Amino acid sequence: MATPVLFIHGLWLHATSWGPWIETFREAGYDPQAPGWPGDHDTVEESRRDPDAIADHGIDAVVDHFAAIVDTLPSAPILVGHSFGGLIAQKLLGQDRARAAVAIDAAQIKGVLPVPLSALRATLPVFRNPANRHRSVSLTAEQFRYAFANAVSEEESDRLHERWTIPAPGRPLFEAASANFDPHSPAKVDTGNEGRGPLLLIASGKDHTVPESVTRSTLKQYRHSSAVTDIQTLPDRGHSLIIDSGWPAVAELCLTWLKEHEL
């Protein structure tokens, strides 16, 4: 039986953006799928027309949503998450709900201290208004270029923005930002779990939203666990690495790592 793979998108991208990855992983012998977040519709267009359905879903609600999907699978899946999807993947792995996880440019978990200026600027469209905690927020093409697609051409950035972006709930960003002041933060991950499956963290050297320093700080949070925790850095990539023209190399990196760990 093929091993299930669950792809988890982050803020501002629709689940269908994983389409090429699903084909690649299926060809490699896996059984992949990419469900949306709570409130996401089946298409980019429908999701844009109904931003209120996406609003006000926090980290715990998203984790519970994907945990329920995991429970329907014939065996524990491999999780591949991008941005906040990477945080969700780490939460589920820490709960022993997955065989392994790959967290690509993952949003900061509780305990990660550096918040570089570029990350603050990238998320300013949400934080400029406290009411956005309970709303959904969209990115303009210019904001998307800074936050996601600064490492590709402006022409490609505009194409990606038009094709894949949807409104995103502001609540997860507020929860992550206050995580280190909240003992019960939903951004807390069980980084000390000794029995969990392997974890690969992927950092992008040009990422404005989740700079490499954030991913390296995330790695340090796992220092008290003997479970496998690896890191790979792609120096010339930005936050759009899973959807831009360079995505095949990232997918191949993931598949190679899975093979190395007999997954």
Rank of each mutant, 00 (worst) to 15 (best):
A89H: 04
Q90Y: 01
L93Y: 01
G94S: 01
G94I: 00
Q95G: 07
D96S: 05
R97Q: 11
R97V: 00
R97Y: 02
R97W: 03
R99I: 07
A100E: 08
A100Y: 07
A100L: 08
A100M: 07
I104Q: 10
Q108K: 15
I109N: 03
I109C: 00
K110E: 12
K110N: 12
G111N: 01
P114M: 02
V115A: 05
V115S: 05
P116N: 09
A119E: 14
A119V: 04
R121A: 13
L124M: 14
V126D: 07
V126L: 03
V126P: 06
F127R: 08
R128Y: 13
R128W: 14
A131M: 15
N132G: 06
N132E: 10
R133S: 04
R133A: 06
H134P: 06
S136G: 03
L139Y: 14
T140S: 15
A141D: 14
A141H: 06
E142A: 15
F144R: 07
R145C: 00
A147H: 12
A149T: 00
V152C: 07
S153Q: 09
E155N: 10
S157T: 00
D158R: 14
R159A: 10
R159M: 10
L160H: 09
H161E: 12
H161T: 05
H161N: 11
R163L: 12
R163N: 09
W164V: 02
W164K: 05
P167V: 02
P169H: 04
P169C: 00
G170E: 08
R171V: 01
L173I: 05
F174L: 05
F174N: 10
E175H: 04
E175N: 05
S178D: 14
S178G: 09
N180C: 08
N180I: 07
N180L: 07
F181E: 11
P183H: 04
P183V: 00
H184Q: 15
H184T: 11
S185I: 09
P186K: 00
K188S: 11
D190R: 13
T191P: 01
G195T: 10
G195W: 05
G195K: 10
R196E: 06
G197S: 06
A203I: 09
A203G: 10
S204G: 14
S204E: 12
S204A: 15
G205K: 08
G205V: 04
K206A: 05
K206H: 12
D207K: 10
D207E: 09
H208F: 09
T209Q: 12
T209P: 13
T209E: 12
P211D: 06
S213G: 07
V214H: 12
V214E: 12
S217N: 15
T218H: 08
T218M: 13
T218I: 08
L219T: 02
Q221W: 01
Y222V: 00
A227L: 06
